[in-house]
Design a protein around this nucleic acid. Structure first.
Lengths: 98, 98
DNA sequence: AAAAGCACTTTGTTTTTCAAAGTTATAAAA
DNA sequence: TTTTATAACTTTGAAAAACAAAGTGCTTTT
């Protein structure tokens, strides 16, 4: 029998990063504050997970203004979408046998 | 929008514990050594994750003998099966929207 | 008698997670 | 115009988790 966890992506072991990705796959772009509220996190905690995802090049950041107020939004890169899909496929394969 | 990670079980954040559960849902009972080989882990690492799962009452342990050689097998409890199902349902809900 | 396997436990290091506080910049309120 | 507030962080530090490696006790094989 094959190792069922070998194809899981370590970056997505974190429930928070999994949550960020799943929200962004559906919503294309979400602001920092919306993510913070949706996932019920502190600023620092969210920022550090976003930075992990960004560092892996799974997310891109867009800093813009609404009026003269900053507005930072996040989106998934093609690489991120691909990596997430592979992870979900591995999860599905594990689960499907049940 | 609802927090998508609230229903995930913290115990199953770990890829290893996820792997153990997914193997045991399919296989009813698996020995320590088989788990060790299937998941490619060191003894200590596997033992500590099994202990976490056992402590949560998601696994039961069966110590028997094959001849006079000890043979320890693990299986999922009803509680473990239920908790795992809830977790998988939460995962599926997150993912299905994609 | 020595070596090896099983199923751990113990030890200690490394990594990860997280909250809280601090930071910089703008904006609205008093 | 001083104060207060909001956004989006970074830094700090503490707690928790993960992990490898070594040690343990028992048995079996050589």
């Amino acid at each position: 029998m094959k190792n069922p966890i070998a194809d899981l992506n370590k970056i997505f072991d974190s429930r928070i990063r999994l949550g960020v990705m799943s929200l962004l796959v559906v919503n294309v772009k979400i602001s920092f504050n919306e993510l913070k509220e949706m996932l019920a996190l502190t600023d620092g905690n969210l920022a550090s997970h976003l930075s992990t995802l960004e560092h892996a090049q799974y997310l891109y950041v867009n800093k813009s203004f609404i009026g003269r107020k900053t507005n930072t939004t996040y989106g998934i890169t093609p690489l991120g979408k691909q990596a997430f899909k592979i992870h979900l496929d591995a999860l599905e394969k594990m689960i499907k046998s049940i």
